[in-house]
């Protein structure tokens, strides 16, 4: 009862995925941090019109949302490629019986 019931097999791609995740996280955190920094230091900059009637704040906000999705898709694709290259990842768990 006190040991993990749901165990995942060894994942040979774990280190690759961890490093990739950290790099992409730093990239996104930088983009997000820049958004916060502009608002703190030069908030007027956010009012600059990038397109007719649409300012930097709106564009930047939408870019942050869209880039999160694109980054997630890219990360998943690279992870799957590495998993395939190193052999199949654990498809399912070993579920121990209840004790």
């Amino acid at each position: 009862m006190h040991e993990p019931q749901i165990e995942s097999g060894k994942d040979p791609a774990a280190l690759y995925k961890s490093r990739l995740g950290m790099r992409l996280f730093i990239a996104y955190a930088s983009l997000y941090g820049l958004f916060v920094a502009i608002n703190l230091v030069q908030p007027a900059l956010m009012g600059i019109m990038v397109l007719p009637g649409i300012n930097l704040a709106v564009i930047y906000g939408l870019v942050l949302i869209l880039s999160a999705l694109l980054l997630a898709l890219w990360y998943d694709r690279l992870c799957r490629r590495e998993e395939t290259r190193l052999g199949n990842p654990p498809k399912s768990n070993t579920i121990r019986g209840e004790d």
Partner: peptide, 27 residues
């Protein structure tokens, strides 16, 4: 809308840093 931006950005942290390692560790 800043809440929308921040709430979604949090999922990037969840995906890239937490999801798989946490799944491997937990029950």
């Amino acid at each position: 809308f800043l809440y929308s931006i921040g709430f979604l950005a949090g999922w990037v942290v969840a995906l890239l840093v937490i999801a798989e390692p946490l799944r491997r560790m937990g029950r």
